[in-house]
Simulated scan of single mutants.
Amino acid sequence: MTELLPLLAEPGQPETLYRALQEETRRLVGHRLFTLLYVDGTDVARVWSSHPAEYPTSGRKQMTETPWGTHVLAGGQPYLGRDVAGIRWAFPDHALIESMGLGSVINLPVRYDGQTIGTCNLLDAEHAYDEAALAKVLPLAPLLVPAFVEARRARS
């Protein structure tokens, strides 16, 4: 993680950081889909996507009043969905996720000042992730705090 910290000073933010984080998580645990969402009221708003055709950066979802939202957004806990059942439990758009050959997920809450302000999301084939994979990427989430604080400030 410390090797990514200097990137926060580089020009072209937040895209510079988003690209580097996408590559670092790919190196650490792999993924077929990488998205970043910030919390905007009762919605989450997508600010980065490795697959913009299927998951455009203009996308929004109402996730705060779901079991996943209670766990990740309100509870501030990461979510590890190891299989298709875990995807179906968490996401109303599970059919699109499954159609892309994705069957496991890691959602990392990005926390600031006692609240979840966004999530970093990695998806891959079924059974691609386990507790060890989650532990490898969990420390990266705080790097997104400045970008998500700025995204929230820009919307107001």
Results as ranks from 00 to 15, higher is better:
1 M>G: 14
1 M>F: 09
2 T>E: 14
2 T>D: 12
3 E>T: 13
4 L>G: 06
5 L>V: 15
7 L>Q: 03
7 L>M: 04
7 L>W: 04
8 L>P: 06
8 L>K: 08
9 A>N: 14
12 G>E: 13
13 Q>D: 08
16 T>L: 01
16 T>P: 02
17 L>N: 05
18 Y>Q: 03
19 R>G: 03
20 A>F: 10
20 A>E: 11
20 A>Q: 09
21 L>R: 08
22 Q>C: 13
22 Q>W: 07
23 E>A: 12
25 T>C: 15
26 R>L: 07
26 R>I: 01
29 V>H: 02
31 H>R: 10
31 H>N: 12
33 L>W: 06
35 T>N: 14
36 L>G: 02
37 L>E: 05
38 Y>E: 05
39 V>P: 00
39 V>D: 01
40 D>G: 02
41 G>K: 07
42 T>Q: 09
43 D>S: 05
44 V>K: 00
45 A>C: 03
46 R>D: 04
48 W>H: 15
48 W>Q: 07
49 S>H: 07
49 S>A: 13
50 S>K: 06
51 H>W: 08
53 A>H: 12
53 A>T: 13
55 Y>A: 02
55 Y>M: 04
56 P>F: 10
60 R>E: 07
60 R>H: 10
60 R>V: 08
60 R>Y: 03
60 R>I: 04
61 K>R: 09
64 T>K: 10
64 T>G: 00
68 W>F: 11
68 W>P: 01
68 W>N: 05
70 T>A: 15
73 L>A: 02
76 G>I: 07
78 P>M: 06
82 R>Q: 12
82 R>I: 12
83 D>L: 04
83 D>P: 03
84 V>M: 04
84 V>T: 11
85 A>S: 13
85 A>K: 08
85 A>I: 02
85 A>F: 00
87 I>G: 01
89 W>F: 14
90 A>G: 14
90 A>M: 09
91 F>G: 00
91 F>K: 02
92 P>M: 00
94 H>W: 14
95 A>E: 15
96 L>V: 14
97 I>F: 08
97 I>M: 12
98 E>G: 11
99 S>P: 05
100 M>Y: 09
101 G>V: 11
102 L>M: 14
103 G>D: 13
103 G>V: 12
103 G>N: 13
103 G>S: 13
104 S>N: 05
105 V>G: 04
105 V>C: 12
106 I>N: 10
107 N>I: 14
107 N>H: 13
108 L>I: 10
108 L>Y: 12
109 P>Y: 11
111 R>Q: 15
112 Y>T: 06
113 D>A: 15
114 G>Q: 10
115 Q>S: 09
117 I>K: 04
117 I>G: 07
119 T>F: 00
122 L>V: 09
122 L>I: 09
122 L>F: 08
123 L>C: 01
125 A>F: 01
126 E>G: 03
126 E>K: 02
131 E>F: 03
131 E>W: 05
132 A>M: 01
133 A>Q: 00
135 A>H: 06
135 A>T: 07
136 K>A: 15
136 K>N: 02
137 V>R: 01
139 P>D: 11
140 L>Y: 11
140 L>W: 11
141 A>V: 07
143 L>T: 10
145 V>S: 08
145 V>W: 04
147 A>L: 09
147 A>M: 10
148 F>E: 00
149 V>A: 10
150 E>M: 15
152 R>H: 05
153 R>A: 14
153 R>P: 00
153 R>V: 10
154 A>L: 15
155 R>N: 08
155 R>D: 00
155 R>V: 12
156 S>A: 14
